[in-house]
């Protein structure tokens, strides 16, 4: 959801399956997205660390040395948060559930066992979601401004 809204705000059409499935799309709208996916895969799959030094070097070339630390921090953060969310059966927040309802089908996310923690949407909520998605970038900007005040 963050990725999709971010793409709309910055005017970049993000193919979400690039990140969900790790697809190596040479025309990806987000620069170095395939490299970032490979870094995440190598860091998370503890049985396959062999390519990490090479990928780290590519990160340094594409960004800088500090980006290796930044990438590692983000991967570490999500390794924690995913386990926490799933270990307490955390449901999606209501606004997110409504706005991202279409992604559940589009990306076949119901295949994940943790999808059980969040109820699906009825027809009314789907329609509301469809409307909210159109104004999502504006909503995010509003929430962001409100959070800062």
């Amino acid at each position: 959801m963050q990725l999709r809204v971010g793409g709309k705000i910055t005017g970049q059409e993000v193919n979400l399956s690039d990140a969900v499935d790790g697809t190596d799309d040479p025309n990806a709208a987000v620069p170095h997205s395939a490299l970032l996916c490979r870094f995440a895969e190598a860091a998370v799959m503890s049985g396959d660390k062999s390519d990490l030094p090479n990928i780290r070097n590519q990160i340094v070339t594409a960004f800088d040395l500090a980006a290796v630390v930044d990438c590692a921090g983000i991967v570490a953060h999500y390794e924690k948060m995913d386990r926490i969310a799933d270990s307490i059966g955390l449901p999606l927040d209501a606004p997110m559930r409504i706005m991202a309802g279409d992604l559940r089908e589009e990306l076949n996310l119901s295949r994940f066992a943790s999808a059980e923690n969040t109820a699906g949407l009825g027809i009314g909520m789907r329609l509301l979601g469809s409307f909210l998605r159109r104004i999502a970038p504006m909503l995010m900007k509003f929430v962001s401004r409100k959070g800062k005040n």
Binding site: V20, S33, V75, L92, S114, N117
Partner: peptide, 15 residues
């Protein structure tokens, strides 16, 4: 967010 999404997908985290 690309990094975050890829990690969550590997962990099959719906949230």
């Amino acid at each position: 967010e690309i990094l975050a999404t890829r990690v969550s997908s590997l962990n099959e985290c719906f949230y």
